[in-house]
């Protein structure tokens, strides 16, 4: 599944977002960039939350605008920042609702057995980190070829960060997983590609092995 931003332009409140880029290979894409560089806008455009003023977003050869909302869930899954847990849903309820799988429990236990004690907990009573983990697991339980995770690392402790990337790596050969974070260290340690944005435009897209984080951080400080 190729994800293509074809001359996508969006103007809003003096901010111009422009992107012309293609994501061909599967793997983990670490998305970096200073605040206001357009990282979340990238995800919102890619998932159809906002529409571009011009240009098109294509999944394989199909324009996102031509795909009805019900069908979009077969293409991507996403976790957005600040999703509130609703009281009265257990983790099992949440996973059943979001994956639309009536018998999700065996899949969950087979892949994420270490969190089996979560299943009957009310999602409102989970810690922030646990809630984020549940949402990440939800994305990976879905068979979508593209996954977007917006600022999920922020709320995870070191142990959960490690587990999260362990899971992401297990799925990364069959999916494109976009992870937004300011934590350049952890992204360079775990990503296959680094995609950097700056002022609403692509700064670079390169293999992680070619990325020099120190030079990038230095450049950011100079620009500042």
């Amino acid at each position: 599944m190729i994800l293509n931003f074809d001359n996508v332009e969006l103007k809003r409140d003096g901010f111009t977002f422009f992107l012309n880029v293609e994501f061909r290979e599967n793997g983990i894409y670490g998305i970096i960039g200073p605040n206001g560089s357009g990282k979340t806008t990238f995800i919102e455009l890619a998932t159809g939350i906002i529409k571009p003023d011009s240009g098109g977003i294509f999944y394989e050869d199909k324009a996102l605008t031509k795909i009805c909302i019900e069908k979009r869930r077969e293409l991507f899954s996403a976790t957005y920042i600040n999703e509130n847990p609703i009281p009265g849903f257990t983790v099992l309820d949440y996973l059943t609702i979001t994956t639309k799988e009536r018998e999700i429990k065996p899949f969950f236990l087979a892949k994420f057995g270490r969190f089996s004690n979560f299943l009957n907990k009310d999602i409102k009573k989970l810690s922030q980190g646990q809630w984020i983990m549940v949402q990440i697991i939800e994305n990976l339980l879905q068979s979508t070829p593209v996954v977007f995770l917006d600022e999920v690392i922020l709320f995870l402790d070191i142990r959960y960060k490690h587990i999260m990337f362990e899971y992401l790596k297990q799925s990364s050969s069959e999916k494109k997983i976009f992870v937004i974070s300011h934590d350049i260290g952890i992204l360079t340690k775990n990503s296959d590609f680094i995609f950097a944005l700056e002022n609403g435009k692509q700064s670079f897209l390169e293999k992680n092995s070619d990325f020099d984080p120190e030079a990038y951080i230095q450049k950011m400080q100079v620009d500042k």
Binding site: E44, T47, R72, R73, I86
Partner: peptide, 13 residues
């Protein structure tokens, strides 16, 4: 029940 963004990403119009 979830945010509009989340509901949309789950395929809800």
């Amino acid at each position: 029940n979830f945010s509009d963004k989340k509901a949309r990403s789950l395929g809800v119009d």
